[in-house]
Design a protein around this nucleic acid. Sequence first.
DNA 1: TCAAACTGATAACATATGTTATCGTTCTAA
DNA 2: TTAGAACGATAACATATGTTATCAGTTTGA
Lengths: 195, 195
Amino acid sequence: MNNQLNNIKEVISNYIEINDEEWADYSSKFRIKEIKKKERILNEGSICRDVFFVDRGLLRIYFTDNKGEEKNFHFALENTFATDYESFLKNIPSNYSIQALEDTTLVLMSYEMLHDGYKELRYGEKLGRLLAEEYFFMFSEKIQSIYTISPLERYNKLKTRFPKILQRIPQHYIASYLNISSVHLSRLINSELHK
Amino acid sequence: MNNQLNNIKEVISNYIEINDEEWADYSSKFRIKEIKKKERILNEGSICRDVFFVDRGLLRIYFTDNKGEEKNFHFALENTFATDYESFLKNIPSNYSIQALEDTTLVLMSYEMLHDGYKELRYGEKLGRLLAEEYFFMFSEKIQSIYTISPLERYNKLKTRFPKILQRIPQHYIASYLNISSVHLSRLINSELHK
DNA sequence: TCAAACTGATAACATATGTTATCGTTCTAA
DNA sequence: TTAGAACGATAACATATGTTATCAGTTTGA
């Protein structure tokens, strides 16, 4: 078996029951893509045609605000999925761009493949639903976090939950993710140190 | 036919094709609930067991931040749905509360009813998916709006899109929805007037 | 290998936003 | 009918956050 599909098989198996026969057929449809640091796999304005599974590496998903500044929306770690779900589903131009922060190995699932899965896999519908729901819950948590806790608290939460991620992502990208300026984040971190 | 189901029939028909026979069977499962202004139909900490369709009136969906302050998350107008989708789907306690801002007539769809629809309606699965997706797109737009435009711009956008809603919702609730203080919103509105 | 780009800290200043309090008006419930 | 609650404007002040600039250390790519 293609080694590069071990991880995605593991992750999908956590969502649904899938047997060897199903996997053999279905997995042949995946495409593998290797991209270099800084390379983009989705550009604002174009249609997002795949769900990207990060086998190795790290992605940032970002969009542009009305001042022309890039805002980081999400970081996709190994063994997680990334896409612009709205562009993907509706087949409309995306507001987001997706860029590699490190050399990255991706497994691509096209729209057709996902829909084939609805028919060919016993739990294909369930897989589609669970992927959508997980994406939805991420959004929900993000909004609640914006409304209910301060930027510094959000930073500390991130630090507690994904301690290693902060070593891999430049701090000014984290600031953008928290929707504050890089100067301000630096101040918050360092003034907390000196308490 | 129950008059109070005309509106929801119209809305559901915009999502999927549903014939008279299907409707006759399915619509018998709806429950109607009349609630008074200020009454709550979901309390933080309890499980959200229904999707609420607003036939007449207005709901506010809100949660509590870590200072104990209520934050308005969404307002549900006539002919739209409201729920805590995560609580509803996962059968877990909700972070949200839902309260009527006016005397309101609701049509309730239980979890069981939605799932029955998956089997009994030809396009039941599609209905479930479209409802979920619409909820998702609302979240997505909300996040992008928070990241990309200023509070005053968000206010003006709301005013353009739902001009009548501002007459029905107290201004300090709008401020909370925009995640700014009521004093600040008042300042923004009035300082713009004097330009 | 080296110049340029990137990164994060910091200072100084400007702007945005929050907090508290007051006041007049309007709404609401007994 | 009326007292109290709710509402929105406003002022004064406090705090949070943004902007610009500088600098030193690090990384990157030709």
